[in-house]
Design a protein around this nucleic acid. Structure first.
Length: 680
DNA sequence: CAGACGACATTTTTT
DNA sequence: ATGTCGTCTG
């Protein structure tokens, strides 16, 4: 039996062992929040609480999985705990209660790309495509509509605040929203936002269901509560209202999802919503060395919003001072970092204990190239999702037809892949076959259609129907996918010249597909719990030394930690992002983002930037981030090329690369070089 | 009407 | 560097 008192400090212990009643845990970075949840779940399971009555809502599936699998190691019963994201939880409930909500059978989830396509069709139907050229594009329209839901404010306000150049189109966007809602209702489909919206409706309007759920989920925990939006806040309240056994955990200084409607007022208002709530603060930091925390504390101190926080290390120093590295260009930076990563690995810091973090995915591309060149395996998190790439969507569309043969978007995609079928033909064909309601019916209709069709695509269409028929007969998901793959591969080779790398993706996908028991499950997981690119889960048993380096957006790095962290792209315009600069609150969020990034590091922290930038074909000078150009930060960092104090990297290799690091923050030299470059 | 080609803008963060 | 939109041709 585990002795919790030995493992936990007094506040952690209190959070773990207080089971009944509302609790708000304010957990600073690295204060052992994951441990608290891990042991609390274990503690509950060992104290005669049915693990099935515990609900753990987290921000990513990764987080839920991590905490539950740790808890399972102490107490196997924990595997029965219900855990996941708000969205996946909503999906499960909506499926269970789809009849009550008025869905005939089931419903389809629209991924982002699909909801954009649907919105595009709505625009076409409303004749908005021939408008003046400055009309917002489908992805912008989706973002506006989604933001209006997540921030709970009218479209007009969103346009004025976030898209002032489109503020004249309020009525049009409103009409599109209306049409889009109708489309979704007619086609039995829900987008991501709908999952939350409909769940809230279900809980609000249906007392019986609400009570039943409260009785089922008697103990609720919500992680990263500072990043929930008003819908999630309401859902939490509705679920926990009856029994009030609810613990939320968060850190207002780490709120980084404001752009998606997260309101940290949720965490502030929690004690008001649940009177009698106990507030437990976890402040001791178990993760980082004090020199790293000094940087983090200075970042906090420079923010507008004064967070009454000061991170104190419980760990002893390792002697590595955080470093600021300035380079001429992105190639020097990539080269230096790659070499440093290798050196550290040779010194015993395994690759998977190291991470490179950045504000936006595209920042990492030169470094990725260098890492590949030097044969350093890495795993990319965040940025464009695997399932959003065209070839994956092509392949999945065929499977989607199996699950819901009336999925117009999926048919459209599959049909237009056939040579000779474009948007018009696809629409006509779909119109002729969509009357039937099941796969069999639709396929036989399609078969008839092909019989006496003499058009140039008839043969290929026949082939598609044959393949779909074949797939629908197959019992095994992996097998079904193989059939599709065999059919799709020639098409892939025809339409993409880089088909080679795309085929690898599809093979990885095929492997994943084989692990599922039903197509529906597979597709829902892909939509809601997006699998990471690559093969992270395929080989979990690899020894430490062979696990890859992590490359991640700061957003996706949330809640995680590494021995060594490199934060690249520390320039103004990247962190903070240039899109945030005209709004104080948005800059503040960028500031918190920086704070999150810094506090991921346990022992070593490197901040880096390069001064030579390219934008729209022009060379420009990147200035150091304003977050570094602030009181007390620079002094906490050891500057390479600036401070010439004692240095632990005097190996020959490093010397040559260090020479490339700028001698100081020398604008003149750079501008001269930029001049030189412009001549050619 | 499909599909190729070229012009153009567009690049945040995620379920 | 990439993807989206419009135009032109067969």
């Amino acid at each position: 039996m585990i002795n919790l008192k030995e493992l936990l400090n007094s506040n952690q212990y209190k959070a773990v062992t207080t089971i009944d009643g509302p609790i708000l845990v304010i957990a600073g970075a690295g204060s052992g929040k994951t441990r608290v949840i891990e042991y609390r779940v274990m503690y509950m399971a060992q104290n005669h609480i049915d693990p099935k009555s515990i609900l753990l809502l987290t921000f990513t599936r990764r987080a839920a999985h991590e905490m539950l699998s740790r808890a399972c190691k102490h107490e196997p019963k924990c595997s029965q705990v219900n855990g996941g994201t708000f969205h996946s939880f909503a999906y499960k409930l909506l499926k269970r209660y789809s009849k009550q909500l008025g869905f005939e059978n089931s419903f389809t989830i629209l991924e982002e790309g699909e909801s954009e396509e649907a919105i595009h069709n709505c625009c076409a139907r409303l004749n908005y495509l021939k408008k003046e050229k400055r009309f917002p594009k489908k992805d912008t329209l989706r973002a506006i509509i989604s933001m209006s839901i997540n921030k709970n404010s009218p479209i007009k306000d969103i346009l004025e605040k976030e898209y002032p150049h489109f503020s004249d189109y309020g009525t049009e966007v409103e009409n599109i929203r209306q049409k889009y809602i109708e489309y979704k209702l007619n086609s039995n489909s829900l987008d991501y936002d709908d999952l939350l919206v409909y769940l809230r409706i279900l809980l609000t309007d249906n007392k019986e269901i609400r009570e039943r759920l409260a009785a089922q989920y008697k103990y609720i925990m919500v992680d990263e509560y500072q990043d929930t939006n008003f819908l999630q806040g309401d859902i939490t309240f509705l679920l926990g209202e009856a029994h009030k056994n609810i613990m939320v955990v968060g850190d207002d200084a780490q709120s980084i999802y404001g752009f998606r409607g997260a309101c940290h007022t949720n965490i502030m208002a929690f004690p008001d919503k649940f009177p009698g709530c106990q507030i437990i603060k976890l402040e001791d930091n178990y993760r980082s060395t004090q020199t790293i925390l000094d940087v983090a504390n200075s970042v906090l101190a420079n923010m507008q919003n004064r967070y009454s926080k000061c991170l104190i290390a419980t760990k002893k120093e390792t002697g590595d001072k955080p470093k600021l590295l300035q380079f001429k260009n992105t190639y020097d930076e990539a080269e230096w970092i790659t070499r440093r990563i290798k050196d550290l690995r040779d010194d015993g810091v395994a690759l998977h204990h190291q991470a490179v973090l950045y504000r936006s995915a595209y920042i990492s591309i030169p470094l990725q190239a260098e890492l590949s060149k030097r044969n350093i395996p890495y795993q990319v998190y965040g940025g464009r999702k695997f399932y959003e790439t065209a070839h994956v969507r092509d392949a999945l569309s065929h499977l989607k037809i199996m699950v819901n043969p009336r999925n117009e978007l999926a048919w459209h995609r599959a049909l237009t892949l056939i040579k000779g079928i474009g948007p018009k033909n696809a629409e006509r064909i779909f119109g002729q076959i969509s009357a039937a309601s099941d796969v069999k019916g639709i396929l036989s209709k399609a078969g008839e259609l092909c019989k006496d069709n003499k058009s140039r695509f008839a043969n290929d269409l026949r082939k598609l129907i044959l393949v779909l028929d074949e797939t629908s007969k197959s019992k095994d998901v992996g097998e079904a996918f193989e059939i599709i793959l065999e059919y799709y591969t020639p098409i892939l080779k025809r339409i993409y010249d880089d088909w080679n790398s795309r085929i690898n993706d599809l093979e990885a996908l095929s492997e994943i597909a084989g692990r599922y028991n039903s197509l529906e499950e597979l597709l829902a997981d892909f939509a809601i719990e997006s699998p990471e690119r690559g093969t992270r889960e395929v080989k979990p048993e690899l020894p430490d030394e062979e696990l890859p380096l992590t490359m991640s957006t700061i957003h996706s790095a949330k809640g995680l930690e590494w021995d060594t962290v490199f934060i690249i792209g520390m320039t103004d315009g990247i962190l903070p992002s240039k899109f945030s600069l005209d709004d104080v609150n948005e800059v503040e969020e960028e500031h918190r983002l920086f704070y999150v990034a810094v506090t991921r590091a346990k022992n070593r922290l490197f901040l880096s930037l390069h001064h030579e930038g390219f934008e729209q074909g022009l060379t420009q000078f990147n200035k150091i981030s304003r977050f570094l150009d602030e009181p007390n930060i620079i002094s906490k960092l050891q500057r390479k090329g600036l401070s010439l104090g004692s240095d632990d990297e005097t190996t020959e290799q490093n010397k040559t690369t260090d020479d490339r690091i700028l001698r100081g923050y020398n604008k003149k030299e750079l501008l001269r070089r930029i001049d030189e470059m412009l001549k050619h």
